[in-house]
Design a protein around this nucleic acid. Structure first.
Lengths: 320, 320
DNA sequence: TTAATTTATGAAACGCGTTTCAGAGCAAGG
DNA sequence: CCTTGCTCTGAAACGCGTTTCATAAATTAA
């Protein structure tokens, strides 16, 4: 293996000069530059990237934490991050956590050890203390409102969005509104729950726990929801579903069961994924690719942390 | 920043001894070991992982090449790879190529530069020459039949599978069979096309190009297929759909258009994803999680390359 | 008891590129 | 003519852990 020293010797210059040529630094005379390049082409020199990393203390690697890979929500988010990463010649290290805290800590430790230059956490399970503990080792970016904490974020105001959606349904005559969600804990879920509670306080209704469905992630989860709904003596007239995939599943299952949409059950999805358009599902648009892009840019940003709220648009279609 | 030298000095031993303790090498006396560990706990020493990489010439990073992130096929594959990676304490570097060859070459170059220890290519765009060129730098593993080439693989015999599926449909009285596929080039697609051609030769029918639909990746692509079908004066009576997602989309759209399944159109999916079970779609089971697992194991395997064929099971349900 | 192992330890070599610092040479400005 | 200020270059320091090799000491085998 030839290294930079060999090249220097062969080209009759110092290693500094070779390094300058390699990194396109100024102040190298044209003749020496050419000599070096000629020698490099003649040899099969390959820069040892790990030596570069050691020397520079950076790896051009950005960590991305997601709970699952096989979900369109995270798939799109990654798509957005990856598209942008290509432009900046950064690579992504994927941490699939399955919501196990240890996996998340491993990612944070890689930040600490400088094996990754920054960390994007798309969905968090660990506490703020943990985030703060590792904050000093490199940029951490979150996909949730982190104002007041010491890290950048691109986020949806889930409280506001959920509240608005509830009001929208209420204004259209729905007084029994349920919702479907993925996790029942987690920052975003808790904001939504709070919005749900506050909304019920405002309209002076009490909450019916049977109208809340957790563990709703995928298309197929819609079936379970519909089956549960059918068992209720007094079912909700509208459902806020925090994923278009689940909404599509519910819609499909309802059609099979001859439950009329939106008359017997109104459905409002989330995300505005292609499936929502195709199935004419009323939904709240969450531009995941764009969010992914912004998360990435925040991750490589060297200056102060900042926060970017993404505004959610209501897309009116045929299921409400 | 304290380094191994500082620790050695503080513990009154040599750096070699500290390194031995750090790596659990034998031949360190209990007392020195404890002394070192005490000093390490007292300081906030963090091993510089990039120095370890430089020294060892390995990074515990495995590259994974996929075309898109937001597709259940690749999502599940990654899920399988990631689940296994956790067990071996390896991390994954994701290369989303969008089927751009340059992205793939970047991944191969990272293998060459030893920034990753091995590379799993889930769907390939570059040629065999390219693979062979980089083969010597580290294990490359493919998700396609690579027998005869110098790399390990876990694969489906797509020719055999496609042929069998065609025969199955044929035996059930279908004489006009079309198919939907993602790419029209690519190793697996070509095998399928060949099976399709050979099958038609065997049953002495000529091929109707209008029965072939490309660019079918997602649920929503099903709509396009159905709309095209409806325009045909002599539509196929059965469709082989190389993704359950697309099959589900076609099924959903057919129901809307009152096309009876399987009477007017038989549909056979691929993958046996949860959605196929839910929508009662006849399909060919491809155990993606398991394939992912095997791909990973082949990637970290140090010995000779080997090939593992995954057998595809037909799951009979209600769409044929 | 002597030879052969095994255990234990440190010095030094090895992996390698980047960057700072010091200095030489030359051109422009005053 | 002298002073600044670039341009160019190389030596040396810096980032840091792993592993080999030589050696000493302690056991075990013969």
């Amino acid at each position: 293996m030839t290294n930079i020293k060999d090249i220097a010797k062969m080209a009759g210059v110092s290693v500094s000069t070779v390094s300058r040529v390699l990194n396109n630094h100024p102040y190298v005379s044209e003749e020496k530059k050419e000599a070096v390049l000629r020698v490099i082409e003649g040899s099969n020199y390959q820069r040892n990237i790990n030596a570069v990393h050691l020397s520079k203390g950076a790896t051009q690697l950005i960590g991305v934490v997601i709970p699952f890979s096989n979900h369109p929500y995270f798939g799109l988010l990654i798509e957005g991050i990856a598209n942008e990463a290509v432009k900046y010649n950064k690579k992504l290290v994927l941490f699939q956590t399955n919501y196990e805290e240890n996996r998340e800590i491993e990612a944070l430790e890689m930040l600490q050890h400088k094996q990754i230059d920054a960390l994007i956490i798309c969905s968090r399970i660990c506490g703020w203390e943990m985030i703060n503990e590792y904050r000093s080792y490199g940029p951490i970016v979150l996909c949730e409102d982190s104002r007041g904490h010491n890290v950048s974020s691109t986020f949806i105001d889930h409280y506001k969005t959920f509240f608005k959606a509830l009001e929208y349904l209420h204004n259209r005559g729905h007084h029994k509104i349920g919702y479907c969600i993925g996790r029942n804990s987690g920052a975003n879920s808790e904001l939504r729950e709070k919005a749900y509670r506050d909304f019920h306080l405002k309209v002076k209704k009490h909450i019916e726990p049977k109208y809340i469905f957790i563990d709703c992630f995928n298309f197929v989860d819609g079936e379970r929801v519909v089956k549960s709904l059918m068992k209720l003596s007094d079912p909700p007239s509208a459902l806020l579903v925090t994923s278009d995939q689940v909404a599509a599943g519910i819609l499909t299952c309802c059609k099979e069961q001859n439950i009329l949409i939106p008359n017997e059950l109104a459905i409002m999805g989330f995300d505005n994924q292609p499936i929502a358009k195709m199935m004419n599902i009323t939904t709240l648009e969450i531009p995941l690719i764009e969010i992914g892009k912004k998360l990435f840019l925040q991750a490589i940003q060297q200056t102060n942390q900042f926060h970017e709220e993404i505004v959610v648009k209501l897309i009116e279609r045929g299921t409400v």
